[in-house]
């Protein structure tokens, strides 16, 4: 049943059928008649650069059939902006669509364009706060289904940047996410971003972990996470990130690492990441022999899949050890 060919609103359009390139195309898709027809109308309106309300209907129809169709999304955005459409209505429609197609990612770029425009000069929403609050809530709802969705996290970061949400509320959000799953590395990454992003992206306030108070708070936060899940790479990476960024001495972390792994009790290792850190502490202390012993423990006993990597680290040690001697 042709949907568009029989519709008088589309009578003026000559559809452009698919050009398959030749009689024997590779990986040709046996499109349904519906899809095929709708696409041929999209090709025709795009060729005519038509931006009209009926194009919005057409693109909605196509997105329903194939949400991964980036062209349709981009053309829809262009059309919305050309028509000065009501973008709040678009946002409502997007909410349903996002929930129906959770794995889709084009939708998040589209959402970003819409929200940005909503707050832009043209539409200038009165209640910006209401908007970002609703957005944050919606995002959190998405995380209930998939707490590690890369594109949703990327959108969340954009919201923080766009609306300057660098305060305690966003930190609490990361804590809420981590309380649900202390191993959710996306939430750790977001925390890093909230703490340091302002200094890194805008340079207009806040030093991130280079502020001694912030650093102490974040070190404590990571340490408490390690206490709950010692073999959890995320907080260890977070600690290492702080060390790398601030240049703080690893010596401050020695006692902490030794709670989970020490050369004195090689049978009682509770975290391979503690051993890894301990090796670095010994390097800083110029104790190449001890560092080597720790790396041997990792290579032979506690983390043998990375044997070559630990040996490589030991090789670097040889050079540094010799230099120190």
């Amino acid at each position: 049943m042709p949907k568009y060919a029989d519709d008088p609103t589309w009578a003026d359009i000559v559809p452009l059928p698919t050009d398959e390139g030749g009689p024997n195309p590779l990986a040709a898709i046996a499109y349904s008649d519906d899809y095929s027809e709708t696409m041929s109308y999209l090709r025709a309106v795009m060729a005519a650069k038509e931006h009209s309300p009926r194009v919005l209907d057409l693109t909605e129809d196509l997105i329903d059939m194939n949400p991964a169709h980036y062209t349709v999304w981009l053309y829809r955005a262009e059309t919305l902006f050309a028509l000065h459409s009501d973008l709040r209505a678009e946002l409502e429609w997007l909410n349903e669509t996002a929930l129906a197609h959770q794995k889709n990612y084009q939708i998040w770029h589209h959402r970003n364009l819409i929200v940005d425009r909503l707050c832009g000069e043209e539409q200038g929403v009165v209640d910006e706060e209401g908007l970002w609050k609703a957005e944050c809530e919606f995002v959190e709802q998405m995380f209930e289904r998939d707490a590690k969705n890369y594109h949703v996290w990327s959108y969340r970061q954009w919201l923080v940047r766009r609306f300057g949400l660098w305060g305690p509320v966003e930190l609490e959000f990361t804590e809420r996410m981590l309380a649900r799953d202390l191993r959710n590395n996306s939430a750790w990454n977001h925390r890093w971003f909230v703490v340091n992003g302002r200094a890194e992206m805008e340079g207009d306030g806040g030093l991130g972990v280079e502020d001694p108070e912030v650093r102490a708070r974040e070190v404590k936060f990571a340490m408490e996470a390690v206490a709950k899940t010692p073999q959890n790479q995320s907080p260890w990476n977070y600690l290492r990130g702080i060390v790398r960024k601030t240049g703080m001495s690893l010596g401050h972390l020695k006692g902490f690492a030794e709670q989970y792994a020490s050369l004195k009790e090689p049978d009682e290792v509770r975290s391979s990441f503690a051993l890894d850190l301990l090796a670095e502490v010994y390097v800083e202390e110029k104790k190449a022999k001890e560092a080597g012993e720790v790396l041997d423990l990792l290579a032979t006993r506690y983390d043998p899949i990375r044997k070559h990597y630990w040996q490589y680290r030991k090789g670097l040690l040889g050079v540094e050890g010799a230099a120190a001697a």
Partner: peptide, 24 residues
């Protein structure tokens, strides 16, 4: 097989057919 005619649900790959060529 992925270079042959693909059934209608492959419309989901309609915007990434070049990947099918490359992967194959």
């Amino acid at each position: 097989v992925t270079l042959g005619t693909l059934p209608a649900p492959y419309a989901a790959m309609d915007a990434s057919r070049p990947w099918l060529f490359y992967w194959t």
